[in-house]
Design a protein around this nucleic acid. Structure first.
Length: 477
RNA sequence: CGGGACGUGGCGAAGUUUGGUAUCGCGCCUGGUUUGGGACCAGGAUGCCGCAGGUUCGAAUCCUGUCGUCCCGACCA
C-alpha cells in the first residue's frame, strides 16, 4: 500500500527515467521551471545543496593556492572574435545584447558563455614579468548558452558554475595545474558526493573549443548514460598569442605564458540525483545534504515527546546538520516527505522510545532500521553518516562495474550499444573517421581515453588497424 | 531545429468531437479528533480554462498566431 502511493507521487525510473528525474527535481523541491524557456527558479533546498558543494570546492581551490575574482557578464563582439576555434565553438549558442533601452549599441555584447576571453583580456593588462606568474584565479558566476534542448540542472540556458583560469610561465607548470585540478574534481566527486568517476582525456572531437587538451571526469548514471562531471583544459599558449599576452622571461626574452581553465557546474546536482536517487525520490550523499538528520517525534501530542525530539536535535547540533519536523502531518506523511528530499538519516522517537531512552535510526538509501540509545547518538551519528557515504559509493561503483562492457569488434560494439546501457570499453586507432562511424552506426560517442589503460586487443574496434588507446564509449547527457 | 503529445484553482484530471452559468479528487484555510509508513470529521476559500487575435447573440470548446512543458531524434565542451 505504501509502495503504491510512492509510485503515484514519483514516476518509477523503470517506467520512464526522464519523467522520474523531473518528478524528483519537483517533489524534492530543488527547482521549478521559470517563465523563461529552459531556465529554473532554484529553490532554497536546491540552493542549499549547491552551496554545500560550492563551499567545499571553494575550500579546495583556496587550499591549492587560487584566488577568487569577478569579471563582467558581457563580452564585446570584437573581443570574442579573437580566438578562432573558440568563437566557432560557441557562436551558435551565444545570446547577444543589441540595444540599451531603444538605442542600438555601437557594438553588440554577448552574454558570456564562458569567460576565457575576458580572462585573457584581463591578463594582458596585468602581466609584464615572469615575476607576475603564475596567476591562479577562479570565478563563481553564471553563464548563458542558448541550448535547444533543456532539462533542469543537466542543461539549462543559464547555469551556475565555477571557472578556474590560470596563467603559467611554462607549459609543464600549466600541464601540472590541469592535472592537479582534475584530481581535485575527481576527489571531490568520490569523497564528497560518493560518485565514482573515470579520469581521462577527451578525444580531439570532444575537446573544448580552443584547447590543446581536455581532461574529464566521467560518471555513469542509473540509466546507463554517461555524464561529464567536470573538465580541466590545457590551452598551451594559443590564447596568449591570440590575445597578445606576453611577459619578459628570466632570460630577458619576451615570452607567451601557458594557460589552463577548469569548470564544474550545477549540473552536479543532476548527477547526484541520477547517481543515488531511487523510486522514493532523492538520496543525498551526507557530506552535501542540507539536512543530514531529520528527527521525527511520533505521537507528538503526548507530553514530553516534542521536548524529547528537540533535546535529541540539540545534542546533535555540533556533529550534524539536523532538523526536527514537529509539523502536524502524520508520521507516514513525514516519512515519505523526507525520503523524497533524500535526507540520509531519520531519527524516530515516540513515547515508548523516550521512556526507554532509545530512538530508531533509519538510513534513507537502504531503509535499514536500528535502535540506538539516545545518549549514544552524538557519537553514533557521524559514524553512521560515514557509513551511508561509503554505502552509496559502493552501490554506485557496483552499478558502474556491472554496466561496463567490453567490445572487440564492430558487430559486438553495435550490439552492446543497442541492448546494454552503460560504458563500453574498446580499442581505438585515433582516427576521427572511426569515431564518426561509431556515432553513426552504434549511436555512441567517445567519453574519454582513461588514464588507467587496459590492452583489450591490438586493433581498432572499428577499422581493424593497429590501436594503442582503450577508450570509454557511451551515450551521454 | 525536426516528429509526436499536452497546457483547465497549488497538483492530477473530466468537460472540447456536437459552442449555452466551470466539475471531480488531492492539497490549502478554520475548528476539533488523531499520530510507529502518505489519518479522520465538519465548515470555508481559491479559475479572465497558457497568452493574443478572430468567428459568434454567446467560446475552455471552432479558426489563426504565439509562448511554454513532456517524450523521441538532431544539435551541443
Amino acid at each position: 500500500m505504501a509502495e503504491k502511493k510512492m509510485v503515484e507521487a514519483i514516476t518509477s525510473m523503470e517506467d520512464n527515467f526522464s519523467q522520474w528525474y523531473t518528478d524528483v527535481v519537483h517533489k524534492a523541491e530543488l527547482a521549478r521551471h521559470s517563465s523563461v524557456r529552459g531556465c529554473m527558479y532554484v529553490q532554497p533546498y536546491g540552493t542549499a545543496l549547491w552551496e554545500n558543494m560550492r563551499n567545499e570546492l571553494d575550500r579546495r581551490f583556496k587550499e591549492t593556492g587560487h584566488e577568487n575574482v569577478m569579471l563582467p557578464m558581457f563580452i564585446p563582439e570584437s573581443l570574442l572574435q579573437k580566438e578562432k576555434d573558440h568563437v566557432e565553438g560557441f557562436a551558435p549558442e551565444v545570446a547577444w545584447v543589441t540595444h540599451g533601452g531603444s538605442e542600438k549599441l555601437t557594438e553588440r555584447l554577448c552574454i558570456r558563455p564562458t569567460s576565457e576571453v575576458l580572462f585573457c583580456d584581463y591578463y594582458a593588462g596585468i602581466v609584464q614579468s615572469w615575476r607576475d606568474l603564475p596567476k591562479l584565479y577562479n570565478q563563481w558566476a553564471s553563464v548563458c548558452r542558448l541550448e535547444k534542448t533543456t532539462r533542469p540542472f543537466l542543461r539549462t540556458l543559464e547555469f551556475y558554475w565555477q571557472e578556474g583560469h590560470t596563467l603559467h610561465e611554462t607549459a609543464d607548470e600549466a600541464k601540472a595545474e590541469t592535472e592537479q585540478m582534475l584530481n581535485v574534481y575527481a576527489d571531490f566527486a568520490e569523497q564528497h558526493l560518493a560518485m565514482p568517476v573515470v579520469k581521462g582525456r577527451k578525444t580531439d572531437k570532444e575537446k573544448f573549443a580552443g584547447a590543446v587538451a581536455t581532461y574529464t571526469i566521467e560518471a555513469l548514471m542509473h540509466d546507463g548514460q554517461a555524464l561529464q562531471a567536470g573538465t580541466s583544459h590545457y590551452f598551451g599558449d594559443g590564447f596568449a598569442r591570440a590575445f597578445d599576452i606576453t611577459f619578459t622571461g628570466r632570460s630577458g626574452k619576451v615570452e607567451y605564458p601557458h594557460q589552463t581553465s577548469w569548470g564544474m557546474t550545477t549540473r552536479m546536482i543532476g548527477a547526484v540525483i541520477m547517481t543515488h536517487g531511487d523510486n522514493s525520490g532523492l538520496v543525498l550523499p551526507p557530506k552535501v545534504a542540507p539536512i543530514q538528520v531529520v528527527v521525527l517525534p511520533i505521537a507528538q501530542h503526548k507530553p514530553g515527546v516534542i521536548d524529547g525530539a528537540q533535546a535529541i536535535a540539540d545534542s546533535l547540533k555540533d556533529v550534524a546538520r539536523v532538523k526536527v519536523d514537529a509539523s502536524d502531518n502524520s508520521p507516514g506523511w513525514k516519512f515519505a516527505q523526507w525520503e523524497m528530499k533524500g535526507v540520509p538519516l531519520r531519527v524516530e522517537c515516540g513515547p515508548r522510545d523516550l521512556e526507554a531512552g532509545t530512538c530508531v535510526v533509519v538510513t534513507r538509501h537502504n531503509r535499514e532500521k536500528i535502535t540506538v540509545n539516545i545518549a549514544d547518538l552524538p557519537e553514533q551519528i557521524p559514524a553512521l553518516l560515514q557509513q551511508v557515504h561509503d554505502g552509496l559509493y559502493q552501490k554506485a561503483l557496483a552499478h558502474r562495474e556491472s554496466a561496463t562492457h567490453v567490445a572487440t569488434s564492430m558487430d559486438e560494439i553495435c550490439s552492446i550499444a543497442k541492448t546494454k546501457p552503460g560504458f563500453i570499453k574498446a580499442m581505438w586507432c585515433g582516427d576521427l573517421a572511426c569515431e564518426m562511424q561509431l556515432k553513426e552506426q552504434a549511436g555512441i560517442t567517445s567519453r574519454c581515453i582513461p588514464f588507467e589503460q587496459e590492452k583489450l586487443a591490438d586493433t581498432c574496434v572499428c577499422c581493424g588497424k593497429p590501436a594503442d588507446d582503450m577508450v570509454y564509449w557511451g551515450r551521454a547527457y
